[in-house]
Amino acid sequence: MSTASDAGTADAGGSAAGAVIELSHVSKTFASRPASPARALDDVSFRVAAGEVGGISGPAGAGKSTLLAIAAGQLRPSSGSVRIDGIEPRRFVEREGIAYMPQPLALPGGWRVADALTRLAVLSGVRPTYTKHRVEAAMRELGLYDDRRRRVRSLKGDARLRLGLAQAIVADHRVIILDEPLDGMGPESLDRLRELIVRLRAFDRAILIASRDTAELQRLTDRVTLIDRGRTRRPGTPRRATPADAEGVFHITLHHGGEHVLAVFPNAISLGRSTYAVRVAGFGPLNHGLRELLDRGALLAAVTPAHAAVDTNALAVNEVGT
């Protein structure tokens, strides 16, 4: 993980426009059996804004995977509209690509872990000079480095989930869609996932996660939409800062002025793309620090509370790094 000292390089890449996933009144009927067509989704709407982590929860068979496949442009809705950054998802994917972890993860079993990630990095458009570095970084971040020569078919359960996450983050995409990343994940991998989500949060990124584990999803995301049997049971409402957040970590995204962050928040960690994680002792110190940042000429783009559990883990790792 990079630190605030490399803020000058943290702004690299990507359009300034924020990625937004938007599904409006989406229905999906599978007509494989014309006599009894299966309605997988019925008038579902939701939106994941730029800089937001959205969650979809519901029991098995609720339609979560269908919804995510539609958002990823891999299924066409029977009715309704789907847009990513204002355009049809398939067009967006072919133009920019997305980080997509489908469920189940299907990769040729004969490929070795490092080879599989390298191939997918090449297809993602990672430049040749960075490919090896990106693949190694993804493997290390997800604890797969020691498995790099293992064949994909030999990976089971938790390791397979981590490979699914690694292939999703091997390139730097603005839209991230993860289908059931928690299903069967061990505690250590869950910590890795929490850290990963913290790191991936950025003002121009939209992250969508589906899981049956509503409680964990509520910790990982900003809002959780509940669906069941293809229908919205509870639309997601934005999470607001709570007193529990006060003594915790906030993400600050700057339009410019990143060079002042360390002077104001000495414990700041750069999350990339001009976003920083800062730990403060309450809303007072946070506002005081923000005022000082503004006084020094920084231009603020967003401030979001990060969950205490998530960021405690993230900072524990980062403090070792710094």
């Binding site: 891999q74 994917v93 920019e96 690509g97 299907a106």
Partner: peptide, 10 residues
């Protein structure tokens, strides 16, 4: 199902 990963790429 290999197409799902490959064609999430650009």
């Amino acid at each position: 199902g290999y197409d799902r990963l490959v064609f999430s790429r650009p």
